[in-house]
Simulated assay, not measured.
Amino acid sequence: MTSSSTPGLTRFNAAEDGTARAVLHDICASGAWAREILARRPYRDAEELLTVSDAAVARLGPADLAEAMAAHPPIGRPTPGDPVSSREQRGMADAPAALRAEMLELTLAYQEKFGHVFLICATGLTAEQMRDAVRRRIGNAPHHEREIVRQELGRINRIRLARLAVTPATPPATTPATEGAAPP
């Protein structure tokens, strides 16, 4: 099989373990997931990386899922100064105040019931779609919701890993607009 590695994936494959681990932690805070991704380097292509990630997410136990979810900000409250968090939650940015208030109420009720933030792959979703999802999911049994969370985490990881794989081989020069920005 021929390699179709991208610049970002080539850089990730060649990175020192500590550097690669830090990059992976920015993608998913689960140590078990990161260890599995690191153990399988080098990757021939992005699809192989995504397949390994999917398998690693499928094997996460409850504590590993909790570790991963603890790093995700609540929907509607992206981490200040984190462009990734803001980009992923863009659908809530311009939501009317009443919808934002309803979302806050729903996500707090969800967190009270399940003991963790409402996790959804928010990329490309509108505020209304996110609200409707939390409304549907709040009635789930904990074991069923844990599997939905696992699926959503897998989707988030795939988007973030795909972005990592296609980043340019040479990062752009630091400018005031990009200074301090988290890597893609």
Results as ranks from 00 to 15, higher is better:
R59K: 06
R150L: 13
V149W: 09
E179N: 07
D26E: 09
A68G: 01
L49D: 05
L60G: 04
A97G: 06
A181V: 02
D94K: 15
S85I: 00
E36D: 07
P7Y: 00
T79H: 12
H144Q: 14
R131I: 15
D45S: 07
T175Q: 01
R163V: 12
S5A: 14
A56N: 04
H116P: 02
R136H: 15
M130D: 11
P74S: 14
P184D: 08
T178N: 08
A162M: 04
P7W: 00
Y110D: 08
I148G: 14
T126N: 03
L50N: 07
V134R: 01
T79P: 10
R135M: 13
T19N: 07
R11F: 00
M92C: 15
E179Q: 02
A173R: 05
V52S: 05
P142I: 13
L24E: 00
I148Y: 15
L38C: 02
L24R: 06
V134M: 05
A58Q: 09
D82R: 00
G91S: 03
A165F: 02
R146E: 14
T174Q: 09
D26I: 02
D132I: 11
L50H: 01
T2A: 14
E179D: 10
P74H: 14
P96Q: 12
T178M: 02
V134K: 06
T167A: 13
E47G: 07
R87V: 07
D17F: 10
F118Y: 10
Q129R: 03
R21H: 07
P184H: 12
L65V: 07
G91L: 05
T107I: 05
E88A: 09
A141E: 15
A95C: 07
V117N: 12
A66T: 06
A101K: 15
E147K: 04
A39P: 06
I148V: 15
A127T: 11
E145N: 12
I156R: 04
A169I: 01
F114Y: 08
P7N: 04
F118C: 06
P62Q: 12
E112R: 12
A46Y: 04
Q151E: 15
R21N: 06
L161Y: 00
P183L: 06
P83V: 08
